[in-house]
């Protein structure tokens, strides 16, 4: 590969992590009062805000109503200041629409939508700072927001990316590694059941390597799920103290 060396001979990456090491994940639930559920999540330098409204009556076209389950409406947007170069359109471009669709599919797999027929659940995510792994950070933040809203889910959805450099799978890619031109695989996992809610890969990869890469991505997802679990438990405990027991 031309230019920068993504993995040094000693096995360290650009930001000093080991191949399987995740970036630091920090999160907070219930950051807004007016929404039904909200969360803020940092995954390394990627910062995301997620907000959930609903379930409420279907807004807009009546043809959208589903008679046996809830409609999930997702909107992904990036702040104009989120990237190194100022973004002109925060949402509505092709990339954002695709991301919105992916989020919708992910959460349709995880949320128990059949409990709320003919209603709508809105999930809005905004990238405040983009440093790679935007999709996974959005999924993780949105999961926390959905839990905060008290909407029943089968399980957490945890997402993480994995790349492949010099025959070594790298977990949780940062922007420099993602834009390096190598393969990047994004997985959204329901960790307890081990079901995959979404799998996406944009570049070419030899079939022989797919299994090792998948394994690395799923291990990374499980690592993320442990962090999310702690955040939720801590939030619950704080809430019970606040309500005065």
């Amino acid at each position: 590969m031309a230019g920068i060396e993504l993995l040094s001979d000693q096995g360290y990456r650009l930001d000093g992590r080991k191949a399987t090491e995740l970036r630091k994940v920090q999160a907070r639930m219930g950051v807004f009062g007016q929404a039904d559920g909200s969360a803020y999540l940092e995954q390394g330098n990627t910062k995301v805000l997620a907000v959930v409204y609903g379930p409420h009556e279907v807004r807009g076209a009546r043809s959208k109503i589903l008679y046996d389950r809830a409609v999930i409406n997702c909107q992904y947007s990036m702040a104009t200041f989120s990237t190194a170069e100022r973004k002109r359109r925060p949402h509505g471009d092709r990339k954002s629409s695709e991301m919105s669709l992916h989020l919708k599919q992910t959460f349709e797999a995880a949320v128990l939508t059949q409990l709320y027929p003919r209603s709508q659940i809105d999930i809005y995510v905004k990238i405040l700072q983009a440093d790679g792994g935007n999709y996974s950070a959005c999924v993780n933040a949105a999961t926390l927001a959905v839990i905060d809203a008290g909407i029943p889910m089968r399980d957490y959805v945890c997402a993480c990316t994995a790349g492949f450099v010099d025959d070594t799978p790298l977990a949780d890619l940062c922007h420099a590694e993602e834009s390096g031109g190598g393969t990047s695989l994004a997985v959204a996992l329901l960790p307890r059941g081990g079901q995959i809610a979404l799998l996406q890969m944009d570049a070419r990869l030899h079939q022989d390597h797919l299994d090792t890469l998948m394994e690395a991505a799923m291990t990374a997802c499980k690592g993320v799920s442990k962090v999310l679990d702690e955040v939720v438990r801590q939030h619950l405990q704080e809430m019970s103290i606040l309500t005065g027991e």
């Binding site: 839990i147 029943p152 889910m153 089968r154 957490y156 307890r192 939720v232 438990r233 619950l236 027991e245």
Partner: peptide, 11 residues
């Protein structure tokens, strides 16, 4: 409420 058990989705 400490003796009550906490749980998270999927548990």
């Amino acid at each position: 409420m400490s003796p009550m058990k906490l749980c998270v989705p999927g548990e």
